[in-house]
Design a protein around this nucleic acid. Structure first.
Lengths: 111, 111
DNA sequence: TTCATTAGTTTAAATGATTAAACCATTAAA
DNA sequence: TTTAATGGTTTAATCATTTAAACTAATGAA
C-alpha cells in the first residue's frame, strides 16, 4: 500500500502535463515545433500562421506548455524563438507512471 | 515528413485519453480502483465514499473513463461493478506516442 | 403488489478554460 | 527621437466542463 501513496503523488505531479498535452490546439503547436525542430526555433507569428490561432491564443498556450517544461524560449532583441525542450523530464515521468499502472493491472490479472 | 503525419494521427487519437487521465477527480477514482483491483470491482456508492464526490459526479466521470477504455463494468441485478480494464491498449498507445516524440527530440539534438 | 435499493439521466446552475480586443512595453530602424 | 515591428498582458466575453437536484427505471425483498 506504500506503492499506492507513491502512485498518488506521481499522478498529482503529472496532472498539468496531461492537461497540457490533451488539448488539440496545443498539440498542433507541438507538432509544428516538431516539424521545425532545428535549434533555431519558431516565432509567435510563425505559429499563428501554422495553427490558425490568434496571437493572444498562441501566447496563452505557449505559456501553458512552458509551465510544464515542454518548450523553451530564446530571445533575440524583440524576437522570441520557441522550441521543444531538449530535456524530456516530464515525458519520462509520465512513462514511469504508465509502467507503474500497467504493472499493477497485470499483477492482479491472475487473482 | 510522413512520420509527422503519423504522429499527428497518434496525437489526435489519444486526446480524449489524456484529458480523461488529467482530471484529478478521475485520478482519485482510478487510484481507488487500483487499490481494490480484485476481479470483484467497486460499486458507485463505494466510489462516492472514497472520492468525496456526489453520485451523479462519479457517474459522469465513470462514463468518461469507460469511453476511453480505461475501465469496464459488470452488472449483477441492479448492482454495477466497475473495475480497471485488463487490456491496456490506450496506455500502450500513449507509451508509443511518447517514445515517438522523444526519438524526434533526441535526433535533432546534434543539429 | 408494494416498498426499498441501486444507479443512470436530464436540466440548470456554477465553475473553469479559451479567446479576441484593446492596451502596454521593448527593441530596431529611419 | 520618432516610427514600425514584435510580442506579452489584461479584461471581458464566450464556450465547455462539472456538478447538484430532481427525476426515472429496474431489480429484489417483504
Amino acid at each position: 500500500m506504500e506503492r499506492l501513496e507513491q502512485l498518488k503523488k506521481e499522478f498529482n505531479d503529472i496532472s498539468d502535463f496531461l492537461i497540457a498535452l490533451g488539448d488539440e490546439k496545443r498539440q498542433s503547436i507541438i507538432i509544428t515545433l516538431l516539424q521545425n525542430n532545428s535549434c533555431k526555433g519558431l516565432r509567435v507569428n510563425d505559429l499563428t500562421d501554422a495553427t490558425q490561432l490568434s496571437r493572444p491564443a498562441v501566447s496563452h498556450h505557449l505559456k501553458i506548455l512552458k509551465q510544464v517544461g515542454l518548450i523553451e524560449m530564446r530571445s533575440e532583441g524583440t524576437k522570441n524563438y520557441y522550441f521543444l525542450s531538449h530535456t524530456t523530464t516530464e515525458i519520462d515521468k509520465l512513462k514511469n507512471l504508465l509502467n507503474h499502472v500497467t504493472t499493477i493491472i497485470e499483477k492482479s490479472e491472475g487473482k
